[in-house]
Amino acid sequence: MRSNKVGWLLLTPTLLLLGVFGILPFIYVLFLSFHQWNPFGASPDRIFIWGNNFRRLVFDGEFLLSIWVTLKFAFFAVFSEIVIGYLLAQLFMREFPGRAVFRTIHTLPLIVAPIVVGSVWRLMTTPSIGIIPYYANQLFGIDINIGRDAGTAFMFTVIMDIWHWTPLVTLTLLAALLSLPKEPFEQAQIDGASRAQIFWHITLPMIRPAILATVFIRLMDALRTVDEVWMLTGGGPGAATRYIGLHIWKVVFPKTDYGYGSAISVIVLYLTLVMCWMLYVGLVAPRNKGN
């Protein structure tokens, strides 16, 4: 090994950059969350107020609502993506002509900018322009208006997320399925196991780590969805699709109530970390059981 000084020297810019732009903002936001500070408010000075911001936050109905809709959105979106993604991955397991081409097409949405995804779906669903409301009305007589009906707006944010991210799930689960050994399946078929039995007792336990890893990645992303939803619904109607990132950006941030905004940011970070950590434990704990 050569002198470690060179090693540290090579590492310094990275550590410096991540320190200044990664750690410092975190410490700063934590510091501010215990202060009252609104430069354009009645008392523009920064005052230390202990946990009062947090005391205010637990009674903030708008904030709690946005947490709730975010969780609902993340649950529906990730759950549907896993189910659909698994089914599509199973379809890809079979040999058929043009498989590579279909797979390429299927990967396409992943690379589209979230903001463009939002605008695409807005053009699809806006009444009088979009094709979905038009045909829903013509064929089934259903009136779709995402600007007015909260349930529909929510549903379309979920559909949009499914369109955007299911390919990722499909391809991760496909990779997991392809890496499985063949023997257990052949043996089970010889023993006359039904397809449901094979799925619950062989496939599912074997690809469990892959599923959990995918859920982990997807959930982290779904919880911080902002761009697409902003373009599609603008958080509306009312606050029905104002997910937490959007709430911070569009409601908390413009109020210039920096202390309280920091407290909200800290709690959102806390909630994300807790979920992240619980999933991580769920991922790692089964592996350590053998020890």
Partner: peptide, 17 residues
């Protein structure tokens, strides 16, 4: 330590509420 902090924050917030 992390678990302790997680639980502490959750408890304090629920207590405040």
């Amino acid at each position: 330590l992390f678990i302790a902090i997680y639980i502490a924050v959750a408890l304090i917030l629920l207590w405040m509420r």
